[in-house]
Design a protein around this nucleic acid. Structure first.
Length: 697
DNA sequence: GACGGAACTT
DNA sequence: AAGTTCCGTC
């Protein structure tokens, strides 16, 4: 890596990649801690001890003094130091968002919902990238903290070498990432074939992928307790996202054919499960002190950085920051179009991922996780079909992933959209507030689901959002009732557009329900295996409006960072073309005039637009495929579906569903939406209706 | 001791 | 952004 590149990287990523040179005042606390931990001379002051990644500050005053000396803060003491450590364990406040769905969500087409769902997923993932849970306090143990290496190493400091302590490293010490000398083999790709890092790294897609990768990729070598292989999870997620269960979907080709799991999985060497800290450090010849690689993986000048894009993870939505992928303008499923795919774009996309994996030491899971690519294989799910070879190594996915969302084909007579709403738990204030109000179901998930609790904060932008996005989805009441907020009222009365609002919140405390000390990483990692690629998980077996109990995963993920751009670009992957698709999508539905006017969403506000490949395209494609299939199906099935639908709706409850039905009925017999789709839409409406939240900003 | 809000600094 | 400082609470 050339010096200037390193310099540039350090500058461009200074907020993420701290200056780590000894003596630097720029050092971050967690790195300083690591620095002490790796030096034997400080083992009487601070040392690894206990569980994996756990360390004990044996001499708090001395550590504080050292820290203060490093930072030129002579007044430093352990109280302050511990405060800083606590900050490391927590989330930056005011950076979480909440999602509020107004009743007008019912006016969203299902593809808008897909878009929204996918966007939210991206937000979740992106947020994770920036979410700093570098360490946490070990409860019950004085002065004891524990690093979350799965977060830290890759996300914050992927190339950190923590193995300098040499012999005597306790088991609590983390493994030494090995670079040179690993079995890692990066598939050759020339810079010209790869997106420029700036494009790549700034892309929200990349951010999502990187974040996702970072979140997961180290799980196998972090706590030493995770038994989920990346591939397993990747497959599971991919399947889940694919929505085809074990079927041989058409999206398996997202794994770069030249990126075998085997080659990519060894970036860190064998998963330390249990870790083998005493094993002699692998070859750690680091021409660049920050990188284990002898040669920069970056293609050259212009590389932005090894780490996080400088933009908000939630969404670099500037047009230039996205992959130069321009979806076919004919992608709108409502237009009955077929989905085209540009192989060149896909190629570049994959290469960008490849590059990212290389740059970040990241997991090949990225390729599996982010199925944001449409493989031009319009195959119906073929149950029992052979899996993609590259995906077939790992254990089978978690059973939960068999609840693959968003596929209408697998279970033709069941809800094809088996996702549920699974919001994070309420914050304290929310809980308290709701305890006095409607009362929210506890985290047991026994609640009756979310009501539509529109934000009391009006959108600051032109968007009168029906969504307000946030990590505390679960804060919604379970009544399923439309709240009486002004926002809701205005939305309802005016029939305003279904829009999304993102707003920061400062007092959501979902983490407080996370027992991070004892079960945190281990169970979290296990739960991560249950990662639901969609924020809206809706299952029939739940109560009509029931909220699933928040999982660790949710707790861990349903936090967001405020997008760096105003709400109009809240669908980052929806560039103008996407918007253009979206609008016709709505218009293509013969709807009531009101709806027609209502559903015409906000105009595209991102000049140039985003050019990412949204997962929604998969949905669209699948949908289109399903529709074609169903169109060819016999009428009796259709009638049966309708009958089932009617029955289900009779069984169902909630104004939203009723409204959704009204909306659909308003389309009349000329509706291009087939019964199954309308059923799906109804379920979507019902599901999304649960994503309501009050707003306490 | 631990926690976390809030204001503040760099 | 990443703490630092102060402080009230548990």
């Amino acid at each position: 890596m050339s010096v200037d590149i390193v310099s540039e990287l350090r500058q461009s990523t200074s907020n993420v990649l701290p200056e780590s040179s000894p003596g630097s005042r720029q050092i971050q606390l967690w790195h300083f801690i690591l620095e002490l931990l790796r030096k034997e001379e400080y083992h009487d002051v601070i040392a690894w001890q206990g569980d994996y990644g756990e360390f004990v500050i044996k001499d708090p005053d001395e550590v504080a003094r050292l820290w203060g000396a490093r930072k030129c803060k002579p007044q430093m003491n352990y109280d302050k130091l511990s405060r800083a450590l606590r900050q490391l364990a927590g989330l930056p406040k005011c950076l979480r968002l909440r999602l509020t769905l107004s009743p007008t969500i019912q006016y969203l087409s299902q593809w808008q919902l897909f878009e929204f769902a996918e966007w939210w997923r991206e937000v979740r993932v992106c947020w994770y990238y920036y979410n700093k849970r570098i360490l946490h306090k070990t409860k019950g143990k004085r002065f004891t903290y524990k690093f979350n290496f799965n977060k830290l190493v890759l996300v914050n400091y992927p190339f950190i070498d923590m193995g300098s302590a040499g012999s005597g490293v306790p088991q609590s010490a983390p493994p030494v990432p090995s670079g040179v000398g690993t079995h890692f083999r990066f598939p050759p790709s020339t810079p010209s074939d790869v997106l420029s890092p700036s494009e790549d790294l700034r892309s929200p897609v990349f951010s999502a992928v990187a974040g996702r990768m970072a979140r997961n990729s180290i799980s196998d070598c972090s706590d030493g307790t995770s038994v989920n292989s990346e591939m397993e999870e990747g497959v599971a997620e991919e399947r889940a996202a694919d929505g085809r269960g074990g079927g041989g979907g058409g999206f398996r080709g997202i794994l770069h054919p030249r990126l075998s799991h085997d080659s990519l999985f060894r970036v860190y060497g064998a998963p330390p499960n249990p870790p083998h800290p005493r094993a002699p450090p692998a070859h750690r010849v680091h021409p660049d002190p920050l990188s284990p690689f002898p040669v920069s993986p970056l293609p050259g000048p212009g590389g932005v950085g090894l780490l996080a894009p400088p933009l908000s993870p939630a969404l670099s939505m500037t047009p230039s920051s996205h992959l130069p992928y321009t979806p076919s303008p004919s992608l709108s499923p409502m237009l009955g179009s077929h989905f085209s795919f540009n192989p060149e774009d896909m190629k570049r996309y994959l290469q960008a991922h490849t590059q990212s994996v290389y740059n970040y030491h990241l997991s090949p899971r990225a390729f599996l996780h982010y199925p944001n690519i449409i493989i031009p294989q319009p195959q119906r799910p073929d149950k029992g079909a052979a899996h993609h070879p590259a995906l077939s190594h790992g254990p089978h996915p978690h059973p939960l992933h068999n609840h693959s969302p968003l596929h209408a084909g697998d279970e033709p007579h069941l809800s094809p959209f088996k996702f549920k709403l699974q919001p994070p738990p309420l914050g304290r204030k929310q809980r308290e507030g709701q305890a006095q109000g409607q009362g929210r179901p506890g985290p047991s998930g026994s609640g009756s689901g979310s009501g539509i609790a529109p934000s009391t904060c009006s959108s600051s932008s032109g968007l009168q959002s029906s969504f307000s996005l946030g990590g505390d989805l679960g804060s919604a009441g379970g009544s399923g009732l439309v709240s009486n907020s002004s926002s809701s009222a205005s939305l309802n009365s005016s029939g305003s557009l279904p829009k999304i609002k993102v707003e920061p919140i400062s007092d959501i405390e979902s983490e407080e329900e996370v027992e991070v000390t004892d079960i945190s990483e281990d169970e979290a990692e296990e739960h991560e295996d249950e990662f639901d690629p969609f924020p809206l998980r809706f299952r029939r077996d739940q109560q009509p409006n029931g909220m699933a109990p928040p999982t660790e995963d949710d707790l861990d993920e349903d936090v967001f960072k405020t997008p760096a751009v105003p709400p109009p670009t809240l669908l980052p992957f929806l560039g103008p073309s996407a918007e253009a698709r979206r609008l016709p999508t709505l218009k293509s539905e013969p709807t009531e005039p009101e709806e027609a006017s209502v559903t015409v969403g906000p105009p595209p506000t991102t000049p140039g637009g985003t050019k990412c490949i949204p997962l929604k395209l998969r949905f669209k494609r699948r949908w289109s495929e399903d529709q074609r299939m169903e169109a060819g199906a016999d009428e009796s099935d259709d009638k049966k579906v309708r009958a089932d639908e009617g029955e289900g709706e009779r069984e169902g409850e909630g104004d939203l569903e009723t409204n959704g039905e009204k909306e659909e009925s308003g389309q009349g017999s000329v509706s291009p939406i087939p019964p199954a789709q309308r059923r799906v839409s109804a379920e979507l409406h019902r599901a999304t209706a649960q994503l309501s939240l009050e707003n306490d900003c």
